[in-house]
Nucleic acid binder design. Structure first.
Length: 234
DNA sequence: CTCGTCAAACCGATGG
DNA sequence: CCATCGGTTTGACGAG
């Protein structure tokens, strides 16, 4: 029985429901998934990881050592026990609490203090918990959106690269034609003529002379990109 | 308030 | 089946 207590004590101290332990350090330590005897009398085996949601901690001594708490208990963190030893106890919100918070967040991503307090009262949480939840939710929404934007920009970049390549090839072909036996002004059809700008050697479609073809294609694409993403200047 | 980070809780894969 | 591992999610905190 002393071994059991020693095990629990070392786990409590080592994994720190209290002390700050780095991931690497944590990996060296025994996993929390470990099965061990929680009752000093050795009557009850607890699989801490899988069964921690069950209300098995009947022993105050072990409960104190492990600092585990059943989710259905009041979720409000005990601040005295929370920060006095530097611990960062994490309490899982219930499905109902999460769902309500999500619903409110969809309507308003920020709340004023009074709204936070009202919501906290409604959900039996602390004002601080609601505040932190909204902070985290905003941060993670923003992060997701950034990832989406990044993915979109990547695709746009690929498209522009392809377009650039295509235009370069087209230009090469036109240059080849220019060098060949045909005259500078290529007769394409009765209605259209394609001309080559003498200064920059870019091809100009009719009525496009003032703008300047290729760069406009890029500029337009860039503008479209900015408009769709809402970027204020690339 | 945001941002970066920590760490508890959770979960799927894997091996004995 | 179960223990364990490695990755992910998410509640919490400190700095700015």
């Amino acid at each position: 029985m002393e071994d059991d207590e020693a095990c629990i004590t070392s786990l409590s101290l080592g994994l720190g429901m209290g002390s700050h332990v780095t991931k690497k350090e944590k990996q060296k330590l025994p996993s929390l998934d470990l099965t061990f005897q929680i009752c000093p009398k050795g009557e009850q085996t607890i699989h801490v990881d899988k069964q921690r949601q069950q209300h098995l901690l009947h022993d105050d001594k072990a409960k104190g050592l492990l600092c585990l708490k059943h989710p259905t208990e009041n979720n409000s963190p005990d601040s005295s026990n929370n920060s006095s030893n530097g611990s960062r106890k994490k309490l899982k919100l219930t499905k109902d609490q999460s769902a309500t918070l999500e619903d409110i967040f969809k309507l308003h991503s920020t709340l004023n203090p009074a709204q936070k307090q009202a919501l906290a009262d409604q959900l039996n949480l602390k004002h601080r918990q609601v505040e932190v939840w909204f902070q985290n939710r905003r941060a993670r929404t923003k992060l997701k959106q950034t990832e989406v934007d990044c993915e979109f920009l990547k695709k746009c970049c690929e498209k522009l690269t392809d377009e650039n390549l295509r235009l370069k090839k087209e230009l090469q072909e036109l240059r080849a034609q220019k060098i060949g036996p045909k005259p500078l002004y290529i007769q394409l059809s009765k209605a259209t003529t394609l001309s080559i700008c003498s200064s920059c050697e870019k091809e100009l479609k009719p009525n496009e002379g003032k703008k300047g073809g290729i760069s406009d294609v890029v500029r337009n694409s860039s503008q479209k990109l900015q408009n769709s993403v809402g970027v204020k200047g690339i």
